[in-house]
Computed example of a mutant assay.
Amino acid sequence: MNAPHPSTFINANDVTMIRDNAAAAETLGHLHPAQLELVYRLQWFKLLVPGAYGGLELSLPNLVRLQEAISWADGSVGWVMTLCCGAGWFGGFMQPKTAKTIFGDPQVCLAGSGAVTGDAELTESGYHLTGTWNYASGADHATYFTANCAIKKNGEAVIGDDGQPLVLPFVIPKKDVALLPTWKYVGMVATGSHSFRIDQALLPADNSFRIDPAHAMVDGALYQYPFLQLAEATLAVNLSGMAIHFTDLCRDIFDKKVKQPKITPAHAAQMNTELASGVAGLQSAREELFSAVDASWEQPGEAQLKAVSKTSRALAILSRKVVDNLFIYCGLMAAAPDTEINRVWRDIHTAGQHALLTFAE
């Protein structure tokens, strides 16, 4: 079986510490210092950073299993780790001098946005960046930010080689960024996914890069793998990790609930059947995704990559559906915002709004 329970891939003591501080992290609105200490110690923000810059350069098959495990421990920790270590993958495309400076920090964390909601005006000395970007998960802990910008010269759009307006991602020091406290959503509270603003920051040309295998600055399979499927797979396992956490909690709740006098044998059978069906469905979908990821890593052809996209989206959709099917049987405990199961429910429904996880195709 290529999809064991997520607990296989994470230390039990680390899970306990993460969960023991999850409620406090929600109160803080960002990861708890104890959770962050673990992230730094295990270099989770550096999972995809090139080994040449002190990163772990983890293979995608190993990455998705670990990311699912961390999200099983806690949704906010898993999401911040996924988004910020995903930005660390950009190190494979940055100029080596710039990358060495950024990733030399043992507490490096890159937060950012893929939306093109800012401009970069080309000058003789570099680029002037201006704009506002939303949903930068881990913003409170970021040492650098990444942002996509429309390239302008003399106020006019620069046209790229493909005949379209040129867009480039940039890496921006924290000192040039103003955080906007906009993250006020029902779930993923501790991700601190705030907006950020940049106003005429001057950056050297080396702070821009191109996310394209042809422009990789580091050799290795990780930086030849397509960004879309990497993003789809890593986001999907965040949802499956949370869904498995939810089913684990349901098992304990159901065991107690079926002993209540008002629960008939038929009711108990219905609850347990729904739980078993959800667990089995998740297991099957996880195995399909992990098999697709493994195959695409060995041979990243068109068919293999399409399979990653298809199975990623299917797993995300099923994860939401399983949680919704089981929620009704959990009683008012699941509706109380200070309970663990409610936090998992809120987290998966907030994370599930990501555009890459909405549709089957």
Rank of each mutant, 00 (worst) to 15 (best):
A307N: 13
A280R: 11
Y127M: 00
L222M: 07
V218S: 01
D105K: 00
G131C: 00
V39E: 01
S71A: 15
G118I: 04
S319K: 05
G138E: 09
D248G: 06
T101S: 14
T27S: 12
G86H: 13
S309V: 08
A351E: 11
Q43I: 00
A34K: 15
S71Q: 05
L42C: 12
L202E: 12
F93N: 04
A233H: 08
T98K: 05
A280I: 01
W89N: 08
V322H: 00
G126P: 00
W345H: 13
L58W: 01
W44D: 04
G331K: 03
E156D: 10
G278M: 00
A150T: 13
L180W: 10
A12C: 06
L305H: 09
V15I: 15
T143E: 05
Q35V: 03
T27E: 15
F145P: 06
F170C: 00
G278R: 10
A280E: 13
V323R: 08
S59R: 12
N207F: 07
E274L: 15
L60H: 11
V171A: 06
V237N: 01
G278Y: 03
I151W: 05
L168G: 12
L203P: 09
P61I: 02
A360P: 07
V171C: 05
G92N: 07
H215S: 11
A276W: 06
S76T: 06
A360D: 13
L289W: 08
A205T: 12
Q353N: 14
D219V: 03
R65H: 09
A336P: 04
D252A: 12
V158Q: 13
L275S: 02
A3D: 08
Y185R: 15
E340Y: 09
A236H: 10
Y185K: 15
Y53N: 04
T143C: 01
Q164T: 06
P181L: 12
M333L: 11
T117Y: 01
D347T: 05
K153V: 09
V77I: 07
V186E: 13
Q224H: 07
N342R: 06
K184A: 15
G331I: 07
D294T: 15
M1Y: 08
D105Q: 05
L83V: 12
S193I: 01
W345P: 02
G29L: 04
A221Y: 02
P33F: 08
A280W: 04
N2W: 04
H354P: 01
L203E: 12
L357K: 01
Q283K: 12
C109Q: 07
W72F: 13
I253A: 12
D294K: 15
E302N: 11
A314M: 01
T358N: 11
H267K: 10
T182P: 09
V64A: 02
I18Y: 05
L282A: 05
K259S: 10
G352D: 08
A266K: 11
Q164H: 14
A236Y: 08
Y144G: 03
L36D: 06
W44R: 10
I159E: 04
T27F: 08
L166E: 07
G104K: 00
C109L: 15
A111G: 06
V15C: 01
K262W: 15
T146R: 02
P265S: 03
E121Y: 03
